[in-house]
Design a binder for these strands. Structure first.
Lengths: 232, 232
DNA sequence: ATAGTTAGTGACTTTTTGGTCAGTAATTGC
DNA sequence: GCAATTACTGACCAAAAAGTCACTAACTAT
């Protein structure tokens, strides 16, 4: 995010030039992610990215063929490992499905939502049309696998009689949507004041979900609106 | 969206030039909305926008001072009337709060989600940082008022004993998030295949909500996870 | 008809920025 | 030390797109 060696002396001369072949790519993609999320792909100037990473524009082109390659690297970096960890956690879990769902939601928040990775969904949403192949990559490696995680939790809960049976595929989307919206909000509209607490938001979402999924008696009024109901 | 008079003759000569002072601005903003949503603000070429509206670039500059003014016009156009209609509907409604909530969700879908206006949220999300004053306008005139609508439905339901009491402000966000995510998805990732039906998605969201909001006995397992519970 | 008004045009200028490369200096091997 | 290597620099180039304006032609009033 910031050049590691930023020891300006008080006289204002620039920091000594350093050769750090290993560290450059990660510093550049980190800086690029920040700029892409903040300003969008097209409005991001590579010179600014390079400057934030503490190098010149020419150096950026030593490590990335062009702007699009940098964009691909930003997206492809560091997303998959998180999913792998979650998949493993889910495989050997023995508690209730409600607990499992809670773990999934809050684990996601800690591993993704509260980190710099939270900017990626906004980036994908904003640039999907301009980079269809990157969007496809994200779809196959993040969306499909993420949906699969939720699907397994729902199936488990239904099988064990903890959740009522419902349209699983659609429910997955409804469960994930507030999570995505949370990070998208945070990385675009910042005027959700200090009274907005992500943990409370997640907790409310979770509570609504658990009650909404719970097996039990029918809740009245869900099917056809009263106003459109014909006398029987 | 498209030049009204697009009668090319079979010989390939261009359509006759027409003077249509009144119609131009709306046609230009409609074309611009499409391009902005599809490619993003910075990647949109004004020459393309003008061409799609059936005029030259010079004409665009007759009606809008510059690119940013065009962007502002796109956002400010045609959002408020929809909200006004919803506010009125809500004011004189006498049925159950569940029905009211249903009307709000599906009414929003018909009036916004299924129209070209559906692209605006993605546009705002993507460009909020580059146009803080436009984001502020959208916040004050759409977000605040939209949240207020949902707040009144929830307050009404709680007051009448139809809904349990809960953290209303946070619940509002959780209710709105899947709606926004729906239109954002649709205007960016298009690979949600033909098996994805927005109406089903809305119905599932609604059903989860109604059960989640319903007044009634406590559902176990919501508070502290079993795994973290100490013996009493 | 026809002179006057103004919507509309598109070639041109200006600005911005992605991308290049000849040169510089930090590091390594001897 | 000193030469060889190469990470790094930033002035420069070229392409793209915003923005301008002298000119054209559709409409209008008389």
């Amino acid at each position: 995010m910031v050049p590691t060696d930023s020891s300006y002396s008080s006289t204002g001369e620039r920091p000594a030039r350093r050769r750090r072949k290993e560290a450059r790519p990660a510093e550049l993609t980190a800086a690029a992610l920040e700029h892409f999320v903040e300003k969008g792909y097209a409005a991001t100037r590579l010179e600014d990215v390079a400057a934030q990473a503490g190098v010149s524009k020419g150096t950026l082109y030593l490590y990335f063929e062009n702007k699009e390659a940098l964009f691909r690297a930003v997206v492809e970096e560091g997303i998959v490992p998180v999913l792998a960890a979650a998949e493993e956690m889910l495989a050997d879990f023995s508690g209730s499905s409600v607990d499992l769902l809670r773990r999934l939601l809050f684990g996601w928040w800690e591993q993704v939502g509260a980190t710099r990775l939270a900017g990626v969904p906004k980036l994908i949403v904003a640039e999907a049309h301009n980079f269809p192949e990157v969007a496809q990559y994200y779809h196959d490696n993040v969306i499909v696998r993420g949906r699969s995680l939720v699907r397994r939790v729902l199936a488990r809960g239904i099988e064990r009689g903890e959740f009522r049976s419902l349209d699983v595929e659609t429910a997955i989307d409804v469960i994930i949507a507030p999570l995505l919206m949370l990070v998208i909000w945070q990385s675009s509209l910042r005027f959700c004041g200090p009274e907005f607490v992500p943990e409370n938001y997640l907790q409310t979402h979770f509570e609504l979900l658990v009650r909404g999924l719970a097996a039990g008696e029918e809740t009245p009024g869900i099917g056809v609106p009263d106003s459109e109901r014909q006398g029987v």
